[in-house]
Amino acid sequence: MTEVDEMNGNVIEVSDLVKKFGELTAVDHVSFQVREGEIFGFLGPNGAGKTTTINMLTTVLRPNGGRATVSGHDVLHEALEVRRSIGLVPQEYTADEDLTGKENLLLVASLYEVPKAEARQRASELLELVQLKDAADRTVDTYSGGMRRRLELACGLINRPKVLFLDEPTLGLDVQTRTAVWNYIRLLKEKYHMTLFMTTHYLEEADNLCDRIAIIDHGKIVALDTPTALKESLGGDIVEIHVDRPAEDGLAAALQAIPNVKQVRSVDGGYRLTVVSGEETAPLILDVIRAHNLKATRISIAKPTLDEVYLARTGRTMRDQEGSSEDAFRQRVITRRARA
């Protein structure tokens, strides 16, 4: 892999990438690098620009600006070389329902010009890997959502890619199937040393699976680091306290003055505080509330999660986000097919 060595171990290099759809800037001057052999996650709500980024890196969409290379090749000028070196597991269930699992794999193999005998060999290995051997000769319309997702995964691997792109790999799946898909993804990294680029809007998925995460919001990267470092960057635990009536002006400043309190933020019905040690600081917070003649109605202490990181970086929670109607339609279709 000489191309990769020349790039200091970066399999994907993106600088100032831009994609516009009419007035809307879907991806807005995004830059990042993905190292060889890591699982890199793109985390953000629907419509944040995750799929658009994947589409540009997989040469499906042409960027309006900036530059991106995948395994050493420019996505715009060396698209064919890029296509040969990557695999894509799209968000949608793209396997043909009228064909069997094996026929679908062989179809994708011939799109990559894998010779027939070789393709058969690889197809049966991959069906074994994703535990679909028994279902190989059944048409895909008889598959469950989890089986389809595993077949998509196998289709993305048929050309033995250096980099695998996974777009929302667990969208619409139940908890057990999701865990199974995570295990396959880890296996690809650990056993085959594959580089994986994945998008997700599930925080726990990004946290569990990814070596590094880029949080993307309105087409911009607002944070990029390991999950642990992102959580530590908040500076401590989250204490949320609700009070019985609206507080006077001085309360926030008084809370801020408590040692170990790093940040105070108003939320509906109370405050959200970032503190160094939640358990020890909570009593001090209660004292200040009482001193202002208020009564605490509810208090919670949480270790920071990516949820808090997301809130801190974007000012909103993931759940507040709404995608376009086209996104909503696509997600409904995928969810319906996943549960079929």
Binding site: V60, L88, T94, D96, L111
Partner: peptide, 13 residues
């Protein structure tokens, strides 16, 4: 609509 087209576009076909 079903995403198959994008899948094919990402291959050398």
């Amino acid at each position: 609509r079903l995403g198959f087209l994008n899948k094919v576009l990402s291959t050398p076909a």
